[in-house]
Structures are given as C-alpha cells and as structure tokens.
Simulated scan of single mutants.
Amino acid sequence: MHRFLAAASSSADPQALSGIAGWAVDIMNDLGGLGAASLIALENLFPPLPSEVILPLAGFTAGTGSANFTLLGAILWCTAGSVVGAWALYGVGALLGRERTRKLMGKLPLVKTSDIEKTEAFFDRRGTWTVFFGRMIPIFRSLISIPAGVTRMGFWKFTALTTAGSAVWNTILIWAGHALGSNWTKVEGYVGILTKVTIVVCLLGGALWVALRIRSNRRKREAVPAEN
C-alpha cells in the first residue's frame, strides 16, 4: 500500500516523483526544514502519511540540494516535527485521563477493569523505556504518546524521551535515504517488513489473550453450579 502511495520514480530528479512522494518534495522545496517538520508532525496524527516514505525522502531531498536544508538540518527539523506531533497525542491522552479511559475501555468485550489497572501500573513502572523504544516501533510510534498522557507522565520527561527515541529513528531513516540517493525507496521495503512483523506479533498476542480470557470465563461459569 505504501509503495502505491509513494508512486516514486527511480530518477534522481526530485521533480520526477509523484503521489505522496511528489507532494512531500514540493512542500520541502517550498518550506524547507519547516516543511519537513510539518510533514512528520502530520505523520504522527495521520498514519496514512508514512514515515518510511517521508523520512528517507527528506534525506534524499537534502542530498540533492533542492531544498534549503542539509542532512543534519533534515534530522533536526524532522525530530522537532515528531515531538510536536507527539505533544498533540499526549494532550489527547491527558484530556481523557485515567477514569474516562477506564470507562471507555471497560465497555469493550472481555476487557476487565483489572486489565486496565495492570496496564496503567506497567506504564507507571516501565513508562520510561516504553516511550523511548516505542518511538522506534512502527504503529506504536504515535500511539505510545496517548497512554503517556493518560498516566500523566511528566511532560518534560515525556518530551525528552520522545526527542531521544525519535532522533534515533529519524536519523537512521534520513541517513539511509541520503546514502541511497535515488534508491531511497528501498528503505520503505525494509521498514515495511518490520511493520508486518509488528502487526503479526500484535495479532497473535491479541488472539492468545482472547483465547485465554474466554477459557477463564468458561471455567468460572462451570465452577458456579459445582459450588451450588
């Protein structure tokens, strides 16, 4: 899907790109670093705008000299954009708060209040590493900001962890796009594999959790007549 959205040409000329890639290049050419930062901020809020396209493309564009930013500038601007986007989602989580989140999640089938409390407790204990490494995992990169807001992780702590994690992820993808030049689309392929692995792991984990919860509920129902 991302390859279709990118619609990228193998030409070294940024103007030869079309689709999302061409649109992104136009923004970066017109607004420079601010344009790159805006795209990444939007990527946090609008997942169909994939970072595996925007970040390598920023590196590629910086290498062509067609935009008003260097490789380092691309990294700094994109990291700033990541933080701004994360702040927005952190704010969503903070507005929801623990009680409202518990009520919403508690209405879901098979979800118990104790499950939510355990998740919150885990985030309270391990939130530091969860936010940092979460910024380097596809799908979770954006979503991790919401529980941070729900649990009211210290704002500046959250900002520092998000900045550090985003800087690592952004540097790798932007540098790869810069190094590969006109072959920057190869980065998307590798990140796409990581994304698919993440999805499969999540689906398997979710299926296992549902199966265990159904079995637990069934055993409880069977135990009631026996007690009577």
Rank of each mutant, 00 (worst) to 15 (best):
L96A: 09
S9Q: 01
L72V: 15
R219C: 05
A7H: 03
R141H: 01
K220M: 07
R98I: 11
T79C: 14
L95C: 05
A211M: 11
G59S: 00
A16F: 00
R141F: 01
G63I: 04
L180E: 00
L194S: 06
L45Y: 05
E117T: 02
I199T: 06
I139H: 09
G91K: 03
V83S: 06
Y90D: 06
G73Y: 12
L143Q: 15
I137D: 13
N228M: 10
R98W: 06
W156Q: 14
I116P: 05
R218W: 05
L143N: 10
F4P: 08
L5W: 09
C78G: 13
A67Y: 08
V150H: 04
R218I: 15
G91Q: 10
F69Q: 05
T195R: 13
V53R: 12
V187C: 00
K186L: 13
A36G: 14
G22L: 01
W23L: 07
G59L: 05
K196T: 05
S216L: 14
G106A: 04
T130L: 13
I144F: 08
P147E: 08
S114Y: 00
T113W: 12
S114K: 12
Y190G: 15
L57C: 01
K103H: 10
L45N: 07
P109R: 01
I137H: 11
W77Y: 14
I172E: 08
S18L: 11
L31W: 14
A94E: 06
R152E: 11
R221G: 11
K103L: 13
A8I: 12
L208F: 00
V150S: 04
D124S: 06
V168S: 13
L72R: 10
W175M: 15
L31P: 06
L104M: 11
G127N: 14
Q15A: 15
V25P: 13
L45F: 02
F122A: 14
L34Q: 13
T61C: 06
K157E: 07
E120T: 09
H178L: 14
P225Q: 10
I174D: 11
D13G: 04
L5S: 01
F123D: 12
L72Y: 10
S82F: 02
A88S: 04
A12Q: 10
G91T: 02
K196I: 10
R141Y: 01
L95T: 08
S82C: 15
F155C: 15
T163K: 03
S18Y: 03
A167R: 07
Q15K: 12
L208T: 12
T113Y: 00
L34I: 02
T151D: 11
W87A: 13
A148W: 02
L161A: 08
F4N: 15
L173E: 09
T162C: 15
R141V: 08
M136N: 07
A176D: 07
G93A: 03
G149F: 01
I193E: 07
W87V: 14
G189A: 06
S82R: 11
L71E: 05
P56R: 03
D30W: 06
T119L: 14
W156M: 13
S18K: 09
I214L: 12
C78K: 06
L39M: 03
L96R: 05
T61H: 03
D26T: 03
L72W: 04
A36W: 09
T61E: 00
I139A: 02
V210A: 15
R218C: 13
M1Q: 09
F122K: 09
W209G: 03
H2Y: 11
R98Y: 03
K118C: 10
